[in-house]
Design a protein around this nucleic acid. Sequence first.
DNA 1: CAATAAATATACAGACCTGTCTATTCCACA
DNA 2: TGTGGAATAGACAGGTCTGTATATTTATTG
Lengths: 196, 196
Amino acid sequence: MTRRKADELDPRERLLQTAQRLFGEQGIHATGIDRIIAEAGVAKMTLYKHFAGKDELVVAALRRKHEVFREFFRAIVESRQEPRGRLLAVFEAQERWFARPDFRGCYFLNAAAELPEANCAARRAVAEHKLWVLGQFQELCRGVGAPEPDRLADELMLLFEGAIARAYVTGDATAARAARRAAAALLEADLPAHRA
Amino acid sequence: MTRRKADELDPRERLLQTAQRLFGEQGIHATGIDRIIAEAGVAKMTLYKHFAGKDELVVAALRRKHEVFREFFRAIVESRQEPRGRLLAVFEAQERWFARPDFRGCYFLNAAAELPEANCAARRAVAEHKLWVLGQFQELCRGVGAPEPDRLADELMLLFEGAIARAYVTGDATAARAARRAAAALLEADLPAHRA
DNA sequence: CAATAAATATACAGACCTGTCTATTCCACA
DNA sequence: TGTGGAATAGACAGGTCTGTATATTTATTG
């Protein structure tokens, strides 16, 4: 086993982080292997020793990004106590996200847009991610006591995804506020008792 | 002036149609000039005589697709008489669209996903398209007599866009039905008089 | 028919792409 | 201090990319 100098990361780790960042910033096809290894400070052979090829690196980057997203999502949800607040916090976090200068839409949807083959490993990773998010919405909807939580989750997630697309294309961060308002209205419609 | 044999299209037209199709099927970066001219049956020099370069061809393809979309949208809206039906018809058309085997998400959003430079001509064309769609939703919302048509239009369009993203990523065409249901609920919330 | 403009075929430059090969250097650990 | 596995540098193959140059053919119009 090779041990690192403790202050610098594993070459594999540097590759993953750099690839994840560049794929997001520039897109997958626009990001060449040479650029990735240069910015990661890693030799080309090291990349091909850790990953079979670019495709595998793309999948690994997607999975890594999913982990990051997961942590983010959990932190946002757990920042609130009451079920309704937990749900709406997701939309409130969107607005801060959209306002970031490095915001470039949905990492996963952007990747899927570049990959026409519906059944490739990367596209499957994207689908898995979205289904995980849907699962979170379903849990949140059960939390608020919705009579049909899965249906409501479908609808709320449409708002969530739509806001990302809208904010990216038109640069309008207030899409998040529209999504939040609509989400509250749908909640209201399903749970008239919770009228605040 | 050069006149055509009447049964075959202008080279420029063949280029535009082929480019529009291939960009949609495979993505922009994945579609090479050589492939476009080969499938269009046009010489390379002809392409560069009509377009300054690939970027300009991309913009032209986006504008052309926008024209096609516009016709589609208008036809759907005008297929109904009553204002509420006109609005909901948009979501009903989505389901048929999503079920098509060549469905590959939003042409414009996919293009934007590949183009990180927010202010390039192609990205501006994408934004223009989305704003046109938003304008249509606003008009439809005014048609149903919504008290705040622009706000409602924002919300309905989030559902519309979200459904496209969802259907593309997970391959689930029923996203359109969830969008339609949520749209009806939001309408209901704003127009309780129209309860049917 | 002759003149003109458009479109064609073909080759090519120069850059970039993924992936491979070889030889060397580094570094932890025995 | 020596050894072995990991990482390195750098060249290279073979393909593809955009865009240009040149010379030829086609079709239309006066």
